[in-house]
Write a protein that binds this DNA or RNA. Structure first.
Length: 265
DNA sequence: ATGACGTGAGTATCACGA
């Protein structure tokens, strides 16, 4: 099963290229972040025509997440039950009766020392408790989306100001590490231990993509049961940077994993 | 560099992104 995540920076102007990418890459599940519309404005029909069911958690103008799946979508949960939030940022479900998927759009944070950074850090602190509760459930678990954190210096281009800047501050990196310490693996890093210049987001300004001045801030975290166990295995994963070359692209690239269910005798 | 782009709301310009 191929499960992809993509911050599309508004789904409606991006619809033709999202449909094109689906036809080329054939994901079974596509989790979208920053759809920037309400449920009734979401382009459900074009995705249904490609064979997807849609679960949408929208918001007017900002944020919003959705899960498209060729298999049954069950046990839908919107946002974190332990965190009061008037923004639409988390959508959880179980796919095909076995794979639990959490689709997350972590707040931007604006800058260190601002109220928005406080909100981001509160969000991440509570997100950890929420994920802890999900790891107690029986299903293999993957958590993917836009985390807005570049976990290590390896995940930011060389000229980035790493110590004080949003995405790279010690506070944000600590919050991300604490998530991993629950027992989750950063799948794309596990498959690319030494790789540098492996990025998922490039600023629209200053030709950042052309000079590969990016950050790796979109991630897919996997429980040990999902990553490699007698029952399940992640056999491959990647960052698909080619859509960043499209006309009117999202500033984020899609990321994906292939997870295999190993048949019991 | 208090910049650069891009999107939504709304129809001039601002909030927001990261």
């Amino acid at each position: 099963m191929k499960v992809a995540f993509w911050n599309v920076n508004s789904v409606r102007p991006r619809l033709p290229q999202v449909l094109e990418w689906i036809k080329e890459e054939q994901p079974d599940v596509l989790c979208l972040q920053e759809i920037k519309c309400q449920e009734h404005e979401f382009p459900t029909e074009p995705f249904e025509e490609e064979g997807f069911q849609c679960a949408v958690f929208g918001q007017k103008s900002y944020n919003g997440v959705a899960i498209l799946s060729k298999y049954a979508i069950e046990d839908i949960q919107k946002n974190n039950p332990y965190f009061q939030d008037d923004q639409s940022r988390i959508l959880e479900c179980v796919i095909d009766g076995w794979l639990r998927v959490v689709n997350v759009y972590v707040p931007n944070g604006q800058a260190v020392g601002t109220e928005k950074m406080d909100y981001k850090l509160d969000f991440l602190k509570s997100f950890k408790e929420y994920i802890k509760s999900r790891m107690k459930l029986e299903n293999p678990l993957i958590i993917g989306g836009d985390f807005n954190v570049a976990p290590t210096p390896q995940d930011a281009h060389k000229s980035a100001q790493q110590d004080k800047d949003v995405l790279c501050s010690p506070q944000e990196r600590k919050a991300f590490r604490e998530l991993l310490h629950l027992g989750l693996l950063d799948t794309i890093r596990e498959f690319n231990i030494q790789a540098k210049d492996l990025f998922s987001w490039w600023d629209y300004r200053s030709g950042s993509f052309q000079s590969n001045k990016g950050f790796r801030i979109d991630h897919i975290l996997a429980s040990a049961m999902a990553f490699n166990s007698p029952e399940y295995k992640i056999i491959n994963c990647g960052i698909e940077s080619s859509p960043r070359s499209n006309e009117r692209p999202s500033d984020h690239a899609p990321i994906w994993v292939k997870i295999e269910k190993i048949n019991k005798i």
